[in-house]
Amino acid sequence: MVAPISNFAAMHFKLPSSFHNRASKEVAKVFWSGMTNSSKIHWLSWRKLCNSKSHGGLGFRYSNLQNRALLAKAAWRMCMDPDSDWAKFTKALYYLHCDFLQARIGNSPSWAWRSILEDREALKLGLLWKIGLGNKVDIWHDNWVSSLPSFKITDQAPLYPTVQKVEELIDHANQRWKKSLIRSIFSTQVTNAILCNQILLLPTEDRLVWGIAKNGIFSIKSTYHLLCNVRDTEDKTSTSLTTPNKWASTPKDVWNLIWKVGATPKIKAFLWRAGAGLSHRGRSI
């Protein structure tokens, strides 16, 4: 009952850190101790349990990142469906003279609006412009090159750029890239990435899609994993994550093999504990 109720609330509001901490502790307690009231040793940290099964974890979810992913869905709907009643109502209150991606927090904002706006940043990480005419897309600041990190141009923008919009890089008469112009402006890596972007034979309006999904459609699951990757990148230099141990040194293929083996869940759980180097009844497995 707790998960559906908390997910409903998390779709509309940013829940407090105390809630996320308590939820994580309770789930971990049930996992290690069962439904009994006794408290047993937690052999692995909650962070490691939240890793995917292919990385040695059990796929538990961070409550706070799940909250952000759910709020990002609300932001996606507001961005993709500006003609809906609730989007029109919110626009009239907070961003009458701009679109949602440029909206500011405004005066006396509601908790719901604060929550959605804060996790609009999570949405921006995965948005990608599909190039049509190219007149809406800023070359240097928008996400539009699918094969580059964060979908952005990695070359430093010049102080006085000679081109500003993607449409200036397109030969509209022949519907192809202006290769010589692109090569004169960008590095080889960026040039190759731009030229890999296909231009439609029949030009259409530029449109936003969910860049980390092949079908371009937003999903909570992909957003959650995106936020996990961002967190892991930010914490990459942490000493707690670089300390060598048996759990971290187990190859990915071994974890995948454990979960694919044709055995009962109890046997799989035993093999997982062995791979993680956990002890059983005081003895090392």
Rank of each mutant, 00 (worst) to 15 (best):
T243R: 02
N197A: 05
V209Y: 11
N229G: 01
R207C: 07
T250C: 06
S249M: 14
K236L: 13
A248W: 04
E234P: 00
D232Y: 01
N197W: 01
T250M: 14
T242D: 06
P244L: 14
D232P: 00
S249E: 10
T233D: 04
D232H: 07
S238I: 06
I199H: 03
I217V: 08
P244E: 13
P251R: 05
I220N: 07
H225I: 06
D235F: 07
L200F: 02
T242Q: 09
L208Y: 03
L202H: 15
D206A: 04
T242L: 12
D235G: 00
I217L: 12
N197V: 15
I199D: 06
T204G: 02
L201H: 14
E234Y: 11
P251Q: 10
N197M: 12
N229T: 03
A213P: 00
H225F: 07
T242I: 08
G211P: 11
Y224A: 06
I220A: 04
S240I: 08
T243Q: 04
E234R: 14
T204L: 11
L208G: 00
I212C: 08
K221E: 05
I217D: 05
R231M: 13
Q198I: 11
C196T: 11
T250Q: 09
D235A: 10
L227M: 09
L226E: 07
G216S: 10
G211C: 12
N215C: 09
F218Y: 13
T204I: 08
N245E: 02
L195E: 04
P244G: 13
K236E: 14
S249F: 06
Q198R: 12
Q198H: 12
C228T: 05
N229M: 06
S222A: 13
L226T: 08
S238W: 10
K246F: 05
N197F: 04
F218V: 02
T239I: 15
T223G: 01
N229C: 05
I212M: 14
L202Q: 15
I199S: 08
L200W: 01
I199T: 09
T239W: 13
T237C: 04
L202Y: 13
I217P: 00
S219H: 10
L241A: 00
S238Y: 07
L202V: 13
P203T: 13
S222H: 11
P251H: 09
Q198Y: 08
I217R: 15
L241S: 01
N245Q: 06
D206P: 00
D206Y: 00
T243V: 05
W210D: 07
L241E: 05
Y224C: 04
N229H: 05
R231A: 04
S238T: 11
L200A: 09
T239D: 09
P203G: 07
I220G: 01
W210L: 12
C228I: 10
K214V: 08
N215W: 08
L201Q: 08
D235V: 04
S222M: 11
T242G: 09
